[in-house]
Amino acid sequence: MGEQINFKEIFRKMCLIRHFELGVAEAYKEKLIPWLVYLAVGQESPSATISTLTKGAAVFTQHRGHSAYLAHGGNPQKLVDELLGLESGCCGGKGGSPCIQDLDVPMYGHHGLIGENIPLATGHALATGKLTVAYFGDAAAEEDYALTSYGFAATHKLPILYVCEDNDLSILTPIKDRRNWQVYDVTRSMGLASAAVDDDPKEIFTAAKQLLNRLPAFINIKTCRHLWHQGNNCDGPPKSDRLAEMRKVIPGASEIETEVKAYVRNLWQKQLQKL
């Protein structure tokens, strides 16, 4: 892995995810999306960064998967259509927000058992021998069948990177109320290369780049979910906002964001006309 970090590319992806999700939130508020939505506002940097190091990898996501889909090159228009329940959506409008799949990425969706994508991704890595990335939250990460999947990957030395987007919340229950252990300590004890980092793209990039040379591996990324587990509401200002931090340091950030924002707004307007 000889890639150098490309902050502008990561920032552009983060902007795409943020403004796409805000578009979903607006459509949800207007009841144009009358079913469940799981938004990744605030959680843009993990997939935006990891995707720059794992091009062509098979991606397995869970319910909060719009971010990984967009970061790994999914078609935003097909995602809008999926959320609107249209046949032109990436799952023919049947899956909706939590079940995003598109083999053009290639990305595989899940069906609602929290963390079920972890063993599925593990089996995919075993059967294909190809680089596989699984994204999930800190609650999915602690599922019993997730833990045994990490162990299986270690036993068989599979080409898989497990990415835990750790927002410290299982709906609203924090980790400290759920367990007194860290998943990355468990994975390390199983023999997986493991790292725990903040959601700073530079930290993620540096750690992930090393881990990708030592697969199977597990990376825990502390992040901050701005909105509720489901839907568009929030409980006040977020504790942190990585995108806002990035705006301050990326040269030309304003122009990039303006351009992306306009693209996303046009996309939503165009697709909403289909309704």
């Binding site: 079920e116 063993p119 599925l120 089996g123 995919h124 075993l126 299986f152």
Partner: peptide, 16 residues
Amino acid sequence: PMADVSNMGIACGAAI
């Protein structure tokens, strides 16, 4: 291993 739920998930992942 004796990990029935993840085992079947891994097998399904291999199936796809």
